[in-house]
Nucleic acid binder design. Structure first.
Lengths: 222, 222
DNA sequence: TTTTTGTTGTCAGCTAGATGACATTCAACA
DNA sequence: TGTTGAATGTCATCTAGCTGACAACAAAAA
Protein backbone atom coordinates (compact mmCIF):
# COMPACT_ATOMS: atom_id res chain seq x y z
CA UNK A 1 0.00 0.00 0.00
CA UNK A 2 1.18 3.41 -0.78
CA UNK A 3 2.09 6.22 1.54
CA UNK A 4 0.40 4.32 4.20
CA UNK A 5 1.31 5.27 7.60
CA UNK A 6 3.61 7.73 5.93
CA UNK A 7 4.49 10.15 8.70
CA UNK A 8 2.07 12.89 9.76
CA UNK A 9 3.37 14.14 6.46
CA UNK A 10 2.74 17.84 6.91
CA UNK A 11 0.06 18.70 9.34
CA UNK A 12 -2.01 21.80 8.93
CA UNK A 13 -1.58 24.55 11.53
CA UNK A 14 -4.33 25.41 13.97
CA UNK A 15 -5.35 28.40 11.89
CA UNK A 16 -5.39 26.38 8.71
CA UNK A 17 -7.62 23.80 10.32
CA UNK A 18 -10.05 26.50 11.45
CA UNK A 19 -10.06 27.83 7.92
CA UNK A 20 -10.77 24.43 6.49
CA UNK A 21 -13.55 23.79 8.98
CA UNK A 22 -15.41 26.78 7.59
CA UNK A 23 -15.31 25.18 4.15
CA UNK A 24 -18.42 23.07 4.50
CA UNK A 25 -20.57 20.82 6.66
CA UNK A 26 -19.24 18.07 8.89
CA UNK A 27 -20.40 14.64 7.78
CA UNK A 28 -20.21 11.35 9.65
CA UNK A 29 -19.90 8.00 7.96
CA UNK A 30 -19.92 4.47 9.40
CA UNK A 31 -17.42 1.74 8.69
CA UNK A 32 -17.83 0.45 5.17
CA UNK A 33 -19.35 3.59 3.72
CA UNK A 34 -18.07 4.46 0.27
CA UNK A 35 -16.97 8.08 0.22
CA UNK A 36 -16.37 8.20 -3.50
CA UNK A 37 -16.04 5.80 -6.41
CA UNK A 38 -14.06 5.71 -9.65
CA UNK A 39 -15.93 7.41 -12.46
CA UNK A 40 -17.66 10.00 -10.33
CA UNK A 41 -17.22 13.72 -10.81
CA UNK A 42 -14.53 15.03 -8.48
CA UNK A 43 -16.38 18.05 -7.18
CA UNK A 44 -15.37 17.97 -3.52
CA UNK A 45 -12.66 17.05 -1.04
CA UNK A 46 -12.95 15.84 2.54
CA UNK A 47 -10.84 16.82 5.49
CA UNK A 48 -10.74 14.06 8.10
CA UNK A 49 -11.47 15.26 11.63
CA UNK A 50 -11.54 11.75 12.97
CA UNK A 51 -11.41 8.24 11.58
CA UNK A 52 -9.62 6.14 9.02
CA UNK A 53 -10.29 5.98 5.29
CA UNK A 54 -8.69 3.88 2.60
CA UNK A 55 -8.07 4.76 -1.03
CA UNK A 56 -8.09 1.82 -3.39
CA UNK A 57 -8.55 0.62 -6.92
CA UNK A 58 -10.31 -2.37 -8.44
CA UNK A 59 -9.70 -4.36 -11.61
CA UNK A 60 -12.59 -5.51 -13.77
CA UNK A 61 -11.94 -9.00 -12.43
CA UNK A 62 -12.41 -7.92 -8.83
CA UNK A 63 -8.75 -7.51 -7.94
CA UNK A 64 -8.41 -5.12 -5.03
CA UNK A 65 -5.42 -2.87 -4.35
CA UNK A 66 -5.18 -0.36 -1.53
CA UNK A 67 -2.91 2.54 -2.41
CA UNK A 68 -3.22 4.69 0.70
CA UNK A 69 -4.73 5.05 4.15
CA UNK A 70 -5.74 8.50 5.37
CA UNK A 71 -6.16 9.57 8.98
CA UNK A 72 -7.22 12.40 11.17
CA UNK A 73 -5.75 15.58 9.74
CA UNK A 74 -5.51 14.33 6.16
CA UNK A 75 -7.42 15.43 3.11
CA UNK A 76 -8.93 12.85 0.81
CA UNK A 77 -9.95 13.28 -2.77
CA UNK A 78 -7.63 16.23 -3.25
CA UNK A 79 -5.68 15.02 -6.25
CA UNK A 80 -8.50 14.77 -8.78
CA UNK A 81 -10.18 17.90 -7.49
CA UNK A 82 -6.97 19.82 -8.00
CA UNK A 83 -6.36 18.76 -11.55
CA UNK A 84 -10.01 18.64 -12.37
CA UNK A 85 -10.57 15.10 -13.45
CA UNK A 86 -12.92 12.28 -12.69
CA UNK A 87 -12.26 10.11 -9.69
CA UNK A 88 -10.05 7.19 -10.63
CA UNK A 89 -9.96 5.51 -7.22
CA UNK A 90 -12.45 4.33 -4.65
CA UNK A 91 -12.55 5.46 -1.07
CA UNK A 92 -14.08 3.64 1.85
CA UNK A 93 -14.34 4.28 5.57
CA UNK A 94 -12.39 1.81 7.73
CA UNK A 95 -13.07 3.45 11.07
CA UNK A 96 -16.09 5.64 11.71
CA UNK A 97 -15.16 8.95 10.15
CA UNK A 98 -16.10 12.54 10.81
CA UNK A 99 -15.06 14.77 7.94
CA UNK A 100 -15.51 18.29 6.63
CA UNK A 101 -16.95 18.12 3.13
CA UNK A 102 -15.62 20.96 1.00
CA UNK A 103 -16.91 21.81 -2.46
CA UNK A 104 -14.34 22.36 -5.13
CA UNK A 105 -15.37 25.98 -5.67
CA UNK A 106 -15.03 26.70 -1.96
CA UNK A 107 -11.59 25.12 -1.87
CA UNK A 108 -10.53 27.25 -4.82
CA UNK A 109 -11.64 30.44 -3.16
CA UNK A 110 -9.85 29.40 0.03
CA UNK A 111 -6.67 29.04 -2.00
CA UNK A 112 -7.14 32.49 -3.53
CA UNK A 113 -7.72 34.16 -0.20
CA UNK A 114 -4.98 32.26 1.58
CA UNK A 115 -2.12 31.51 -0.81
CA UNK A 116 -0.14 29.91 1.98
CA UNK A 117 -2.78 27.20 2.14
CA UNK A 118 -2.18 26.45 -1.52
CA UNK A 119 1.52 26.16 -0.83
CA UNK A 120 0.84 23.86 2.12
CA UNK A 121 -1.31 21.66 -0.09
CA UNK A 122 1.43 21.54 -2.70
CA UNK A 123 3.82 20.41 0.04
CA UNK A 124 1.45 17.71 1.17
CA UNK A 125 1.06 16.46 -2.37
CA UNK A 126 4.82 16.44 -2.80
CA UNK A 127 5.29 14.34 0.32
CA UNK A 128 2.55 11.96 -0.77
CA UNK A 129 4.12 11.62 -4.20
CA UNK A 130 7.51 10.60 -2.86
CA UNK A 131 5.83 8.22 -0.47
CA UNK A 132 3.86 6.64 -3.31
CA UNK A 133 6.99 6.32 -5.41
CA UNK A 134 8.78 4.69 -2.50
CA UNK A 135 5.98 2.16 -2.22
CA UNK A 136 6.35 1.39 -5.92
CA UNK A 137 10.04 0.86 -5.35
CA UNK A 138 9.42 -1.39 -2.39
CA UNK A 139 6.91 -3.48 -4.29
CA UNK A 140 9.35 -3.82 -7.16
CA UNK A 141 12.41 -4.56 -5.02
CA UNK A 142 11.43 -6.51 -1.91
CA UNK A 143 9.61 -9.75 -1.50
CA UNK A 144 6.63 -10.39 0.68
CA UNK A 145 8.28 -10.72 4.11
CA UNK A 146 10.17 -7.49 3.53
CA UNK A 147 7.11 -5.60 2.38
CA UNK A 148 5.02 -6.91 5.25
CA UNK A 149 7.71 -6.04 7.77
CA UNK A 150 7.84 -2.55 6.33
CA UNK A 151 4.07 -2.25 6.55
CA UNK A 152 4.08 -3.30 10.18
CA UNK A 153 6.84 -0.84 10.96
CA UNK A 154 4.92 1.99 9.32
CA UNK A 155 1.75 0.98 11.13
CA UNK A 156 3.59 0.82 14.43
CA UNK A 157 4.83 4.34 13.83
CA UNK A 158 1.50 5.71 12.74
CA UNK A 159 -1.01 3.72 14.77
CA UNK A 160 1.18 2.38 17.51
CA UNK A 161 0.82 2.60 21.26
CA UNK A 162 4.06 2.06 23.14
CA UNK A 163 4.33 -0.11 26.22
CA UNK A 164 7.25 -1.74 27.97
CA UNK A 165 6.54 -4.87 25.96
CA UNK A 166 6.55 -3.32 22.53
CA UNK A 167 4.33 -1.30 20.22
CA UNK A 168 0.68 -2.26 19.92
CA UNK A 169 -0.98 -1.46 16.61
CA UNK A 170 -4.30 -0.08 17.72
CA UNK A 171 -6.27 -0.68 14.55
CA UNK A 172 -7.06 -4.24 13.53
CA UNK A 173 -6.68 -5.11 9.86
CA UNK A 174 -7.61 -8.48 8.41
CA UNK A 175 -4.90 -10.42 6.62
CA UNK A 176 -6.82 -9.85 3.42
CA UNK A 177 -6.76 -6.09 3.95
CA UNK A 178 -3.00 -6.21 4.49
CA UNK A 179 -2.57 -8.33 1.38
CA UNK A 180 -4.28 -5.57 -0.62
CA UNK A 181 -1.80 -3.08 0.75
CA UNK A 182 1.37 -4.92 -0.18
CA UNK A 183 0.27 -6.57 -3.40
CA UNK A 184 0.11 -10.20 -2.35
CA UNK A 185 -2.43 -12.89 -1.45
CA UNK A 186 -4.17 -13.52 1.84
CA UNK A 187 -2.59 -16.93 2.60
CA UNK A 188 0.84 -15.47 1.98
CA UNK A 189 0.24 -12.75 4.57
CA UNK A 190 -0.96 -15.34 7.07
CA UNK A 191 2.19 -17.38 6.54
CA UNK A 192 4.53 -14.42 6.86
CA UNK A 193 2.82 -13.23 10.04
CA UNK A 194 3.14 -16.73 11.52
CA UNK A 195 6.81 -16.59 10.72
CA UNK A 196 7.23 -13.23 12.44
CA UNK A 197 5.39 -14.65 15.41
CA UNK A 198 7.63 -17.69 15.51
CA UNK A 199 10.75 -15.54 15.55
CA UNK A 200 9.12 -13.39 18.24
CA UNK A 201 9.17 -10.16 16.27
CA UNK A 202 5.47 -9.78 16.85
CA UNK A 203 2.69 -11.35 18.88
CA UNK A 204 -1.07 -11.31 18.89
CA UNK A 205 -2.74 -9.16 21.57
CA UNK A 206 -5.86 -10.26 23.44
CA UNK A 207 -8.29 -8.75 20.94
CA UNK A 208 -6.33 -9.88 17.93
CA UNK A 209 -4.31 -6.72 17.35
CA UNK A 210 -0.68 -7.08 16.42
CA UNK A 211 1.98 -6.11 18.95
CA UNK A 212 5.41 -5.44 17.53
CA UNK A 213 7.97 -6.78 20.00
CA UNK A 214 11.16 -6.21 18.05
CA UNK A 215 11.27 -3.37 15.58
CA UNK A 216 14.88 -4.20 14.82
CA UNK A 217 14.11 -7.78 13.82
CA UNK A 218 11.38 -6.62 11.47
CA UNK A 219 13.77 -4.10 10.05
CA UNK A 220 16.24 -6.86 9.19
CA UNK A 221 13.70 -8.26 6.75
CA UNK A 222 13.96 -5.47 4.21
CA UNK B 1 7.86 2.97 -13.87
CA UNK B 2 5.66 5.54 -12.37
CA UNK B 3 3.76 8.31 -13.99
CA UNK B 4 5.83 7.66 -16.96
CA UNK B 5 4.48 9.05 -20.08
CA UNK B 6 1.59 10.20 -18.00
CA UNK B 7 -0.06 12.78 -20.17
CA UNK B 8 1.41 16.27 -20.52
CA UNK B 9 -0.16 16.30 -17.12
CA UNK B 10 -0.73 20.00 -16.69
CA UNK B 11 1.44 22.20 -18.77
CA UNK B 12 2.41 25.63 -17.60
CA UNK B 13 1.04 28.57 -19.54
CA UNK B 14 3.29 30.80 -21.63
CA UNK B 15 3.36 33.42 -18.90
CA UNK B 16 4.16 30.87 -16.24
CA UNK B 17 7.04 29.56 -18.30
CA UNK B 18 8.44 33.07 -18.71
CA UNK B 19 8.19 33.50 -14.98
CA UNK B 20 9.98 30.28 -14.30
CA UNK B 21 12.72 31.13 -16.77
CA UNK B 22 13.59 34.18 -14.70
CA UNK B 23 14.12 31.94 -11.69
CA UNK B 24 17.73 31.06 -12.38
CA UNK B 25 20.41 30.17 -14.92
CA UNK B 26 19.94 27.69 -17.75
CA UNK B 27 22.17 24.67 -17.38
CA UNK B 28 22.97 21.98 -19.95
CA UNK B 29 23.82 18.43 -19.04
CA UNK B 30 24.92 15.50 -21.24
CA UNK B 31 23.45 12.02 -21.24
CA UNK B 32 24.36 10.18 -18.07
CA UNK B 33 24.86 13.25 -15.93
CA UNK B 34 23.52 12.89 -12.42
CA UNK B 35 21.32 15.84 -11.60
CA UNK B 36 20.85 14.92 -7.97
CA UNK B 37 21.41 11.97 -5.67
CA UNK B 38 19.71 10.55 -2.61
CA UNK B 39 21.01 12.09 0.58
CA UNK B 40 21.75 15.51 -0.85
CA UNK B 41 20.16 18.67 0.42
CA UNK B 42 17.10 19.53 -1.64
CA UNK B 43 17.83 23.18 -2.20
CA UNK B 44 16.76 23.60 -5.82
CA UNK B 45 14.41 22.43 -8.54
CA UNK B 46 14.92 22.21 -12.27
CA UNK B 47 12.51 23.10 -15.03
CA UNK B 48 13.20 21.09 -18.17
CA UNK B 49 13.36 23.22 -21.33
CA UNK B 50 14.51 20.31 -23.41
CA UNK B 51 15.57 16.72 -22.83
CA UNK B 52 14.64 13.66 -20.85
CA UNK B 53 15.47 12.90 -17.24
CA UNK B 54 14.74 9.85 -15.14
CA UNK B 55 14.00 9.66 -11.44
CA UNK B 56 15.06 6.43 -9.78
CA UNK B 57 16.02 4.70 -6.60
CA UNK B 58 18.69 2.17 -5.73
CA UNK B 59 18.88 -0.54 -3.09
CA UNK B 60 22.06 -1.17 -1.15
CA UNK B 61 22.51 -4.30 -3.25
CA UNK B 62 22.47 -2.34 -6.51
CA UNK B 63 18.85 -2.95 -7.40
CA UNK B 64 17.65 -0.22 -9.71
CA UNK B 65 14.07 1.03 -9.98
CA UNK B 66 12.93 3.89 -12.19
CA UNK B 67 9.89 5.65 -10.77
CA UNK B 68 9.37 8.42 -13.31
CA UNK B 69 10.53 10.00 -16.52
CA UNK B 70 10.37 13.76 -16.92
CA UNK B 71 10.28 15.68 -20.18
CA UNK B 72 10.29 19.13 -21.66
CA UNK B 73 7.92 21.26 -19.62
CA UNK B 74 8.25 19.24 -16.41
CA UNK B 75 9.82 20.19 -13.14
CA UNK B 76 12.15 17.79 -11.40
CA UNK B 77 13.12 17.72 -7.78
CA UNK B 78 9.99 19.58 -6.73
CA UNK B 79 8.66 17.17 -4.17
CA UNK B 80 11.51 17.29 -1.64
CA UNK B 81 12.03 21.00 -2.15
CA UNK B 82 8.38 21.61 -1.34
CA UNK B 83 8.28 19.65 1.86
CA UNK B 84 11.80 20.54 2.77
CA UNK B 85 13.51 17.20 3.04
CA UNK B 86 16.61 15.56 1.78
CA UNK B 87 16.59 14.02 -1.66
CA UNK B 88 15.47 10.41 -1.48
CA UNK B 89 15.79 9.58 -5.17
CA UNK B 90 18.42 9.86 -7.84
CA UNK B 91 18.01 11.73 -11.08
CA UNK B 92 19.94 11.17 -14.27
CA UNK B 93 19.83 12.70 -17.74
CA UNK B 94 18.68 10.27 -20.46
CA UNK B 95 18.66 12.73 -23.33
CA UNK B 96 20.80 15.85 -23.36
CA UNK B 97 18.93 18.27 -21.14
CA UNK B 98 18.64 22.03 -20.97
CA UNK B 99 17.07 23.12 -17.71
CA UNK B 100 16.41 26.20 -15.64
CA UNK B 101 17.96 25.73 -12.21
CA UNK B 102 15.88 27.45 -9.55
CA UNK B 103 16.95 27.87 -5.95
CA UNK B 104 14.44 26.96 -3.31
CA UNK B 105 14.30 30.51 -1.95
CA UNK B 106 13.60 31.88 -5.41
CA UNK B 107 10.83 29.35 -5.97
CA UNK B 108 9.28 30.30 -2.68
CA UNK B 109 9.22 33.98 -3.53
CA UNK B 110 7.77 33.15 -6.94
CA UNK B 111 4.93 31.36 -5.17
CA UNK B 112 4.33 34.31 -2.90
CA UNK B 113 4.23 36.80 -5.75
CA UNK B 114 2.17 34.56 -8.00
CA UNK B 115 -0.20 32.42 -5.96
CA UNK B 116 -1.67 30.93 -9.13
CA UNK B 117 1.70 29.31 -9.77
CA UNK B 118 1.51 27.63 -6.39
CA UNK B 119 -1.93 26.32 -7.26
CA UNK B 120 -0.67 25.07 -10.61
CA UNK B 121 2.17 23.26 -8.87
CA UNK B 122 -0.30 21.67 -6.45
CA UNK B 123 -2.30 20.48 -9.46
CA UNK B 124 0.77 19.00 -11.06
CA UNK B 125 1.68 17.19 -7.86
CA UNK B 126 -1.87 15.86 -7.60
CA UNK B 127 -1.74 14.47 -11.11
CA UNK B 128 1.65 12.92 -10.47
CA UNK B 129 0.41 11.35 -7.27
CA UNK B 130 -2.52 9.62 -8.94
CA UNK B 131 -0.25 8.49 -11.73
CA UNK B 132 2.22 7.04 -9.23
CA UNK B 133 -0.57 5.27 -7.37
CA UNK B 134 -1.84 3.85 -10.64
CA UNK B 135 1.60 2.48 -11.37
CA UNK B 136 1.63 0.83 -7.96
CA UNK B 137 -1.71 -0.71 -8.74
CA UNK B 138 -0.51 -1.93 -12.12
CA UNK B 139 2.60 -3.48 -10.63
CA UNK B 140 0.49 -5.21 -8.00
CA UNK B 141 -2.23 -6.40 -10.38
CA UNK B 142 -0.80 -7.20 -13.79
CA UNK B 143 1.95 -9.51 -14.85
CA UNK B 144 4.89 -8.65 -16.99
CA UNK B 145 3.32 -8.74 -20.46
CA UNK B 146 0.52 -6.50 -19.27
CA UNK B 147 2.84 -4.03 -17.61
CA UNK B 148 5.13 -3.91 -20.61
CA UNK B 149 2.21 -3.43 -22.99
CA UNK B 150 1.01 -0.58 -20.81
CA UNK B 151 4.47 0.97 -20.80
CA UNK B 152 4.66 0.80 -24.58
CA UNK B 153 1.22 2.36 -24.90
CA UNK B 154 2.18 5.21 -22.60
CA UNK B 155 5.44 5.71 -24.47
CA UNK B 156 3.61 5.70 -27.79
CA UNK B 157 1.33 8.41 -26.48
CA UNK B 158 4.08 10.51 -25.00
CA UNK B 159 7.01 9.94 -27.31
CA UNK B 160 5.24 8.59 -30.36
CA UNK B 161 5.38 9.75 -33.95
CA UNK B 162 2.41 8.61 -36.00
CA UNK B 163 2.72 7.21 -39.50
CA UNK B 164 0.40 5.14 -41.69
CA UNK B 165 2.21 2.06 -40.38
CA UNK B 166 1.82 2.72 -36.70
CA UNK B 167 3.36 4.79 -33.93
CA UNK B 168 7.13 5.03 -33.72
CA UNK B 169 8.56 5.57 -30.26
CA UNK B 170 11.23 8.17 -30.93
CA UNK B 171 13.40 7.53 -27.89
CA UNK B 172 15.33 4.31 -27.66
CA UNK B 173 15.40 2.55 -24.30
CA UNK B 174 17.43 -0.56 -23.58
CA UNK B 175 15.58 -3.61 -22.36
CA UNK B 176 17.35 -3.19 -19.06
CA UNK B 177 16.06 0.37 -18.76
CA UNK B 178 12.51 -0.85 -19.44
CA UNK B 179 12.92 -3.62 -16.89
CA UNK B 180 13.72 -0.97 -14.27
CA UNK B 181 10.50 0.83 -15.15
CA UNK B 182 8.15 -2.12 -14.77
CA UNK B 183 9.84 -3.97 -11.96
CA UNK B 184 11.12 -7.02 -13.77
CA UNK B 185 14.36 -8.49 -15.16
CA UNK B 186 16.07 -7.77 -18.44
CA UNK B 187 15.68 -11.25 -19.99
CA UNK B 188 11.98 -11.16 -19.19
CA UNK B 189 11.57 -7.89 -21.07
CA UNK B 190 13.43 -9.33 -24.04
CA UNK B 191 11.15 -12.34 -24.10
CA UNK B 192 7.96 -10.31 -23.84
CA UNK B 193 9.05 -7.94 -26.61
CA UNK B 194 9.83 -10.92 -28.84
CA UNK B 195 6.35 -12.18 -28.15
CA UNK B 196 4.79 -8.85 -29.10
CA UNK B 197 6.88 -8.90 -32.26
CA UNK B 198 5.73 -12.39 -33.11
CA UNK B 199 2.08 -11.43 -32.75
CA UNK B 200 2.82 -8.34 -34.83
CA UNK B 201 1.81 -5.82 -32.21
CA UNK B 202 5.17 -4.12 -32.57
CA UNK B 203 8.22 -4.21 -34.79
CA UNK B 204 11.77 -2.93 -34.69
CA UNK B 205 12.50 0.17 -36.78
CA UNK B 206 15.75 0.58 -38.72
CA UNK B 207 17.64 2.19 -35.86
CA UNK B 208 16.27 -0.17 -33.24
CA UNK B 209 13.37 1.97 -32.05
CA UNK B 210 10.12 0.26 -31.33
CA UNK B 211 7.20 0.84 -33.68
CA UNK B 212 3.79 0.02 -32.26
CA UNK B 213 1.72 -1.49 -35.06
CA UNK B 214 -1.41 -2.45 -33.16
CA UNK B 215 -2.33 -0.40 -30.14
CA UNK B 216 -5.46 -2.53 -29.70
CA UNK B 217 -3.51 -5.78 -29.49
CA UNK B 218 -1.22 -4.35 -26.85
CA UNK B 219 -4.24 -3.12 -25.00
CA UNK B 220 -5.65 -6.64 -24.86
CA UNK B 221 -2.70 -7.63 -22.68
CA UNK B 222 -3.75 -5.70 -19.62
C1' DT C 1 -27.95 -21.98 22.89
C1' DT C 2 -27.44 -22.89 17.93
C1' DT C 3 -26.68 -20.92 13.43
C1' DT C 4 -24.42 -18.09 10.37
C1' DT C 5 -20.80 -15.49 8.54
C1' DG C 6 -16.26 -13.86 8.40
C1' DT C 7 -11.43 -14.75 9.61
C1' DT C 8 -7.51 -17.74 10.05
C1' DG C 9 -4.40 -21.69 9.48
C1' DT C 10 -2.61 -24.93 6.29
C1' DC C 11 -1.63 -27.55 2.32
C1' DA C 12 -0.78 -29.65 -2.55
C1' DG C 13 0.00 -28.36 -7.12
C1' DC C 14 1.39 -25.24 -10.38
C1' DT C 15 3.70 -21.35 -12.90
C1' DA C 16 5.62 -16.78 -13.71
C1' DG C 17 9.56 -15.10 -13.55
C1' DA C 18 14.31 -14.58 -11.21
C1' DT C 19 19.14 -15.91 -11.85
C1' DG C 20 23.29 -16.88 -13.97
C1' DA C 21 25.33 -18.12 -18.00
C1' DC C 22 26.58 -17.96 -22.62
C1' DA C 23 26.55 -16.92 -27.57
C1' DT C 24 25.47 -13.48 -30.77
C1' DT C 25 24.84 -9.10 -32.68
C1' DC C 26 25.48 -4.25 -32.82
C1' DA C 27 27.71 0.23 -32.38
C1' DA C 28 31.44 3.02 -31.35
C1' DC C 29 35.93 4.00 -31.86
C1' DA C 30 40.83 3.84 -32.93
C1' DT D 1 39.18 -1.94 -40.96
C1' DG D 2 39.53 -4.56 -36.87
C1' DT D 3 38.75 -4.13 -31.84
C1' DT D 4 36.09 -3.52 -27.79
C1' DG D 5 32.18 -2.97 -24.90
C1' DA D 6 27.44 -2.91 -24.66
C1' DA D 7 22.92 -4.72 -25.88
C1' DT D 8 20.35 -8.66 -27.16
C1' DG D 9 18.62 -13.47 -27.71
C1' DT D 10 18.15 -17.79 -25.45
C1' DC D 11 18.37 -21.38 -22.16
C1' DA D 12 18.29 -24.57 -17.90
C1' DT D 13 17.42 -24.30 -13.20
C1' DC D 14 15.16 -23.03 -9.18
C1' DT D 15 11.75 -20.88 -6.10
C1' DA D 16 8.49 -17.44 -4.29
C1' DG D 17 4.22 -17.09 -4.16
C1' DC D 18 -0.47 -17.76 -6.49
C1' DT D 19 -4.67 -20.62 -6.64
C1' DG D 20 -8.19 -23.23 -4.88
C1' DA D 21 -9.62 -25.80 -1.28
C1' DC D 22 -10.89 -27.07 3.19
C1' DA D 23 -10.84 -27.33 8.15
C1' DA D 24 -10.72 -24.78 12.44
C1' DC D 25 -12.07 -20.84 14.87
C1' DA D 26 -14.25 -16.73 16.33
C1' DA D 27 -17.71 -13.39 16.53
C1' DA D 28 -22.12 -11.96 15.77
C1' DA D 29 -26.88 -12.88 15.09
C1' DA D 30 -30.97 -15.49 15.78
Amino acid sequence: MQDFPGRPVLDLTEQEICLVRTGGPVVSYPVGHQVFAAGEVADRVYFILEGLVKIFKLTECGNHCTVALRYTGDFIGLAEVLYGGQRTFYSQVMQEAKMVMIQKSVLESLFLQHPSLAVKVAQIMGARLREAQSCFFELASYQVPGRLALLLLKMAERLGEKSEEGVKIKVKFTHEEMAYMIGTSRPTVTAALKMFEKEKSIKKGKSGEIVVLRLDKLHDWV
